[in-house]
Design a protein around this nucleic acid. Structure first.
Lengths: 135, 135
DNA sequence: TTCTCCCATGATAATGATTCCTAGTTAATT
DNA sequence: AATTAACTAGGAATCATTATCATGGGAGAA
């Protein structure tokens, strides 16, 4: 229906991307909004959400949809797996080769057309393990 | 602190479990509430949520937390993987051996204490592939 | 059986993340 | 500079989920 509207590089959009690329964490929209507000104090949370959505649709960033209630965003668009700390809620990257064969295996076994998979680990991050030891 | 309060097997709780076990789909709380209401028309959605939570904490059912906005529930408590149809939103089981080694591998490589992982596939279910062909 | 305790229920309000709406603003193009 | 479609801020609306609270009812003791 609608031809894709042409993107404009607004200040807000620019700063959102920059701030997201600065960190290796995987912030939520709210966290990112706080970060951006240090430079653009009047930016609204809705704008952050809208731009994160647009940027991820354009393939410039990644919308993570990891377990948990809040969506997270990643400036690294390479396909990779994640690890969530149950204690602090943080999400880290996993250095691990992608599983390349399982999609086809599952496709054969299930009758589904398999387009991809999502693998994520849960556990306790080094920092939280350290804290626990202190208790 | 609190000794776990003793569970009372109420009619509502009973019926929720029965209805969940009847299906091989992985209903949301709302869907399950509709199913249960055919037998207990006055049950409230809050009761369904509360009991699903209690039952999953007790290990009698599984809370799925698959990608997407709504939580889903599974009467099958065996550890297994899932497959989500992007078209109809349905969630199916995958017949596939569990990946047993990767947790330890990731633990060694990452410094995290890895407690488990969650793997889910995305694609199109046989039924939606069939519909698509008709277009 | 009756009393008492206490967990459970139903109804509804509250919360929190996300999306939608609208009037005013701005980047890109001519 | 003028034009215009895309964008923004702010707030309202939505949707899933959780909390609150007065009432209900089952299990054990008397």
């Amino acid at each position: 229906m609608d031809p894709t509207p042409k993107l404009r590089m607004t200040t807000q959009r620019q700063v959102i991307m920059e701030e997201l690329h600065k960190v290796k964490s995987h912030p939520t929209a709210g966290e990112l909004c706080q970060m951006v507000r240090r430079r653009l104090p009047r930016i609204s949370l809705g704008t952050v959400y809208r731009n994160l959505d647009i940027l991820s649709r354009s393939g410039l960033i990644q919308k993570l949809d990891v377990a948990g209630q809040e969506m997270r965003f990643d400036g690294d668009i390479r396909d990779h797996y994640h690890l969530r700390c149950l204690e602090c809620g943080g999400v880290s990257d996993v250095e691990m080769a992608l599983l390349t064969d399982i999609d086809q295996e599952v496709e054969k076994a299930s009758g589904f057309e398999v387009l991809g998979h999502r693998l994520e680990f849960v556990g306790r991050c080094p920092s939280c393990r350290r804290d626990k030891r202190a208790n």
